[in-house]
């Protein structure tokens, strides 16, 4: 791309904010009551994070992988791709993250949660709770309709933030699980920034917090 310095973020925005949020409204209506299952899945992962046991890491990773696959197929590929041709590639990346979660966590058993307190573990659980409870409220609190709500396990952004929390809450940081979520934080932050969305800061902030906490954890070990 020559003269790349002349491009701004808005040059890459293919749709209007109205169309973007309307997509969530139609998506939520089409998949109801899957939202209930997603909330139950999120609470189940949270319980597994907080109650250490021999299998909790494998089960949490498997549930999260299912959420990633769902978002890849039902949202990115089937819906978002209708207004953004790049979403097909993003759906493939989400499917890859689901495979990584299965390989590393569910099958490999390398995502384990101990009972031992650490600041990074608290940050990880904090990010997960934020994604599950607070992040869905941000849209409605900044003027968007409740019907456009973005939920963990259903929409990409809260699913990503929750996933950032998981390796931080684990005994060892699994960087391979963080790469795709961090890339999405950049993409989503840029998209929302270009749309002048008031919550554009959330995804980049979550990425910075996650990387900071992960690096601190690695040094502390």
């Amino acid at each position: 791309m020559s003269e790349w310095w002349t491009y701004t973020l808005s040059d890459f925005l293919l749709f209007s904010p109205r169309t973007y949020y309307r997509l969530f409204e139609l998506y939520n209506a089409a998949i109801w009551p899957a939202q209930i299952a997603a909330v139950v899945a999120g609470l189940a992962i949270l319980a597994l994070l907080c109650r250490p046991g021999p299998w909790q890491g494998r089960v949490a990773a498997a549930i999260l992988a299912a959420c990633w696959l769902w978002v890849a197929w039902a949202y990115l590929f089937k819906r978002y791709a209708t207004i953004n041709w790049a979403a097909s590639y993003e759906a493939a990346a989400f499917a890859l993250e689901a495979l990584l979660l299965v390989a590393v966590g569910a099958i490999g058993g390398r995502l384990t949660f101990g009972a031992k307190y650490s600041p990074a573990r608290s940050v990880g659980i904090g990010l997960f709770v934020f994604a599950l409870v607070v992040q869905p409220l941000v849209g409605p609190l900044t003027g968007r309709a409740w019907s456009e709500v973005e939920l963990f396990g259903i929409a990409p952004d809260p699913t990503i933030v929750a996933t950032l929390g998981l390796p931080l809450a684990a005994d060892r940081v699994r960087w391979e699980l963080l790469i795709i979520p961090l890339l999405w934080c950049v993409i989503s932050g840029a998209t929302l920034w270009a749309m002048e969305a008031p919550d554009a800061w959330i995804m980049p902030s979550a990425a910075v917090i996650a990387v900071g906490a992960a690096m601190w954890k690695v040094r502390a070990l």
């Binding site: 749709f15 209007s16 309307r22 819906r79 207004i83």
Partner: peptide, 12 residues
Amino acid sequence: WITFNVGNDDVA
């Protein structure tokens, strides 16, 4: 550009 990119939204 942008204005007609409304996906499968029947109303739009």
